[in-house]
Simulated assay, not measured.
Amino acid sequence: MRLADACTIHTGYTARGRLEPAAAGGVLAIQLRDISPEGIVDPERLTRVQLDGLAERYFVRTGDVVFRSRGERNTASALDERLQEPALAVLPLMVLRPKREVVTPEYLAWAINQPPAQRHFDSAARGTNIRMIPRSSLDDLELDVPDIETQGKIVVVDALAERERELTQLAADTRRKMISLLLVERTNSMRPKTRQERTSK
């Protein structure tokens, strides 16, 4: 299924200059820098900006997906229930609004982040200094879209696998630190005592 048939696609808001934080009020804004390497958007870290007369299509809500169309990582992130008010999506972010009877936000983001979709973007990328993914490449991306129940199972298994990876990495890091401490203690115990250390006893 083409991505354009599974969701509506909009470009983010084009900022004419640097978006300055609002002293009071304003609207939440999601910019490229607000998406973590793991694809997480933390609403508590978003900045409010003072802008008026914005079109509704630029705003994202829980259940929408944002796509990074510029940079080395062209991945998608599903916005969860922590986003409790509309937020302005700023270019180079693209707004993907899933057709809920066809695809869930979590599965859509997962599918876009998988190797087949990423290879599609690799072949379509433009730019030499800054990699950019054209809108047409998003429209024409082919995705395997199973039934909603299967989508949910895939997302759950993927989340469990990611958690397992995190715990495995944490265990490896902890073990490495413990070994380092033991080696340091062993090295210190084998170090010849200085005259001051010998006479202090």
Results as ranks from 00 to 15, higher is better:
Ile154Pro: 03
Lys177Gln: 13
Ala6Thr: 07
Arg2Val: 00
Arg186Cys: 03
Arg33Asp: 12
Ser69His: 05
Ala78Gly: 02
Arg45His: 09
Met190Gln: 15
Arg186Thr: 07
Asp42Thr: 11
Arg175Pro: 00
Glu72Gln: 13
Gly63Tyr: 08
Gly12Cys: 11
Ser69Asp: 01
Ala109Trp: 08
Pro21Tyr: 12
Gly53Asp: 09
Ser123Glu: 13
Ser123Tyr: 07
Asp80Arg: 14
Leu96Cys: 11
Glu38Thr: 13
Gln31Gly: 15
Ala22Gly: 07
Leu183Arg: 14
Arg165Asn: 05
Arg68Pro: 00
Ile9Tyr: 06
Arg165Lys: 15
Gly152Trp: 05
Ala29Asp: 05
Ala109Arg: 09
Pro116Trp: 06
Ser36Val: 12
Phe67Cys: 09
Gln50Ala: 15
Glu185Ser: 10
Lys99Leu: 11
Arg68Phe: 02
Gly53Pro: 08
Gln50Tyr: 01
Ala78Arg: 09
Thr47Trp: 01
Pro134Glu: 03
Asp173Trp: 01
Leu182Gly: 01
Val41His: 01
Arg82Val: 00
Ser200Glu: 14
Leu91Pro: 00
Pro134Gln: 02
Arg18Thr: 12
Arg57Met: 08
Leu141Gln: 08
Thr174Gly: 01
Pro192Phe: 13
Met178Gly: 00
Arg70Leu: 10
Phe121Leu: 09
Ile179Met: 13
Arg45Thr: 14
Asp122Thr: 08
Thr128Gly: 13
Ser180Val: 04
Leu51Trp: 07
Asn129Gln: 10
Leu160His: 10
Gly26His: 05
Ala24His: 12
Arg68Thr: 15
His120Met: 07
Thr62Ile: 01
Thr174Met: 07
Leu170Gly: 03
Glu149Lys: 12
Leu32Glu: 05
Leu3Ala: 04
Met94Phe: 15
Asp139Ile: 00
Ser123Lys: 12
Arg45Val: 00
Arg16Val: 00
Thr104Leu: 09
